[in-house]
């Protein structure tokens, strides 16, 4: 069977995770197929406002990956809730430039996790983004359909 470019690339990433493991605070929860992977993310150390909390990050890969970026959202279900963060909406959508205009095909699933982890780590105040309710009310299911405006350069 000839594998598509995206599947080959994802398998290489998976193999890398299997052999080398994940960085501290990041754990692969589910990768049953070449479409949806779920990582558990927690921020380590005492400085963080998310001490003791664990979040589930869902990555949904499309056939165009890695040229095209994946859909990345925090899970919002009975077990996991998205973090209270100025760039994370309560439906799990994340406003981060690498998940949009700043995406680069050299990034990997793990590097997305690391970026999100450091985005959480640099957070000082737990709050929802302004306009959260308005956005969540009308947000499309796929965060890629949202037209993000990146205001904060610190992420």
């Amino acid at each position: 069977m000839v594998l598509s470019i995206s599947s080959r690339r994802l398998m290489k990433e998976l193999k890398e995770i299997e052999t080398k493991g994940t960085p501290p605070g990041i754990q692969l929860l589910k990768a049953d197929d070449m479409e949806t992977w779920i990582f558990l993310i927690s921020v380590l150390g005492d400085e963080t406002v998310y001490k003791g909390e664990t979040f589930a990050l869902k990555l949904k890969f499309e056939p165009g990956y890695p040229i095209d970026y994946p859909q990345v959202t925090f899970l919002s279900d009975d077990q996991y809730q998205p973090p209270l963060h100025p760039h994370v909406y309560s439906n799990g959508h994340i406003c981060a430039s690498i998940l949009g205009s700043e995406w680069s095909p050299v990034l990997t699933a793990l590097s997305i996790c690391i970026t999100i982890q450091s985005m959480l780590a640099s957070c000082k105040k737990k709050e929802r983004p302004p306009g959260n309710d308005r956005y969540v009310r009308s947000a499309p299911l796929n965060p890629k359909l949202t037209r993000w405006a990146y205001e904060d350069d610190t992420v």
């Binding site: 594998l3 398998m11 290489k12 193999k15 299997e18 990768a31 197929d33 070449m34």
Partner: peptide, 9 residues
Amino acid sequence: TNHPLLASL
């Protein structure tokens, strides 16, 4: 360590 998906690699 032997993920089923990796068999094709």
